[in-house]
Amino acid sequence: MNHTGATGYIGGDALATLHAAHPEFSYVALIRSNEKAEQVKARFPNVRVVLGDLDNSALLQRESAAADIVLHTADASDHVGAAKAIAAGLVAGHTKEKPGYWLHTGGTGILTFEDSDKGTFGNKRDKVYDDWEGVEELLNLPDHAFHRNVDKLVLDAAAKHADVLKVALICPPTIYGRGRGPCSQRGRQVYELAKVTLQLQKGPIIGAGQAIWNNVHIHDLSDFYALLVHAAVAGQNDDGIWGPKAYYLTENGEHRWGDLAQSTAEAAAKLGLIPEAKAEPIDLESAKQYAGFESLSWGLNSRGRALRARKLLGWKPSYPSLLEELPQIVQSEWQRLQE
């Protein structure tokens, strides 16, 4: 099994989950630096480390050709070269009798194009996508949507080489919860929101704060990767699990960004980390100075329903909700700021 992103938040937690369930698997991890490689090997001694990065297409192609399964999480949604190399390698190294499996990670930033096109931030949109009856809509999103260029490469490969290449496109929303990987255990959007709340002593709200986004616990997401891996190992090639329509929105609820900013401030105040539980509007430029690109998402809508994973693979998210996890997130960000 070939793994990109083992040192990251998503990939590290997925590797920890899979390795715990199947220590007997043969794992190969693509890692950029010797330092990170040592961290991975210390935690998982039987993982074979290949030093290299996503720009090394020949290496990616060679390792993908030799792998039964490729789990791609490292900058997967935006790196065109890596997607091309993985597709080419899997096709070259597999046959109809022994297909290659590709678990590709996208992201629900792809659903924010309407807000981005119109330059609107903080307003609610009622549009909710779904990956079952509405999957055609997801397969035909506008070409200029975020991540769409790589999505198209993956889906085109899935259609063109359906017999040899079994593809699942996993599209996570806001991810939260402490990761169990060897290097990065921290999420992004909500963690940056908590950090900025502590820095400003108030929750940051973009626009009217009415924009809505889905969320999922990192452990529930990893459980879904594991379900797909189990299906691959079992040769479970039922229609819809893999292929050009195997688009999975992996959500387990949604949050309104303004409400989340208020809840984050309340959690911080309750922990005694800020003087009072208040959330106030902040302009985009100021927000970007504190949290960079992540802050833009606090004003955007990304709404969908994860039906495919539940219907076809029996995915049953069970970990704590985002609101339940907020105190731990705020506390961990406080500790990071003290370092």
Rank of each mutant, 00 (worst) to 15 (best):
T4H: 03
R178T: 09
Q328F: 11
I170Q: 00
E254H: 10
E294P: 02
H161R: 08
S295R: 05
L307S: 07
V229Q: 02
G122A: 08
R148H: 07
N140F: 09
G209S: 05
F146T: 10
F224L: 14
T250L: 07
G93K: 04
T73R: 03
G89A: 11
A306D: 05
D259N: 11
A194Y: 01
L200M: 12
L323S: 06
F25M: 12
G81F: 06
K127R: 15
N301S: 09
V330S: 02
Q39A: 11
V91F: 11
V154A: 06
V40S: 04
N2F: 15
G100D: 07
Q61H: 10
D117T: 11
Q189K: 08
S332L: 07
L323F: 06
K127Y: 10
A277Y: 04
V190S: 02
I69E: 07
R148I: 04
L313W: 03
P45K: 10
I218L: 09
L15W: 04
F146N: 01
R32M: 10
S57D: 10
R310S: 05
Q201Y: 04
G12N: 01
L249E: 05
E333V: 08
V233Y: 03
S57N: 10
D130C: 07
K195V: 01
D75N: 15
Y247L: 05
N252E: 07
H255W: 06
A82D: 12
A269V: 08
L198R: 02
E254W: 09
E325G: 05
A168D: 03
Y290E: 05
F113K: 05
G100S: 12
G292Y: 09
G134C: 09
H104D: 14
K311F: 07
T4I: 06
A231C: 09
R178D: 01
A269S: 13
